[in-house]
């Protein structure tokens, strides 16, 4: 069974200069698409990627990453909307590159489809009441 999942990888400082993601292709037959990559203030690496392939290859690849010391989180938990704060104005709708926000034509409320979210963070500061929160 083929799978495609978006995950957040955190590389501790000792792993930042090692080729790790490339082995997912070479040894585990997986494809990846890097959605975001950065090095944090503590010299840790952070990468958001979409990983796809067969389920058993995917599981083995994730096992390899974990034993290498890479921390893995699933992406959908990372950008959250504070429902108390959101006023459903709609300012986020055209700011979001993967179109994760959509206005319901009947209620005119803004729907946040976190499956589409790539955690780019553009909505965080563009949101007037600051309702979008990023948790890495």
């Amino acid at each position: 069974m083929a799978v495609a999942k978006r995950i957040v990888l955190r590389f501790p400082q000792r792993l930042v200069d090692r080729p790790i993601v490339s082995r997912l292709v070479r040894d585990y037959n997986l494809d990846f698409n890097i959605l975001k990559a950065s090095v944090t203030q503590d010299d840790e690496g952070l990468m958001v990627l979409e990983l796809s392939g067969q389920q058993n290859d995917y599981d083995r690849g994730i096992g390899y990453l974990t034993t290498s010391g890479v921390q893995i989180q699933s992406l959908s938990q990372d950008v959250l909307r504070n429902e108390e704060r959101c006023t459903h104005c709609g300012a986020c709708v055209t700011v979001c590159p993967p179109h994760a926000f959509e206005v319901d034509p009947v209620t005119r409320k803004v729907l946040f489809n976190d499956e589409k979210c790539v955690a780019c963070g553009l909505c965080i500061k563009a949101c007037p009441p600051r309702a979008m929160e990023v948790h890495f």
């Binding site: 006023t87 104005c89 055209t94 206005v103 007037p128």
Partner: peptide, 13 residues
């Protein structure tokens, strides 16, 4: 051109 609102219509309702 895609449009976005700054005024919350659902809150106006």
């Amino acid at each position: 051109v895609p449009t976005a609102s700054l005024s919350s219509y659902s809150r106006a309702v």
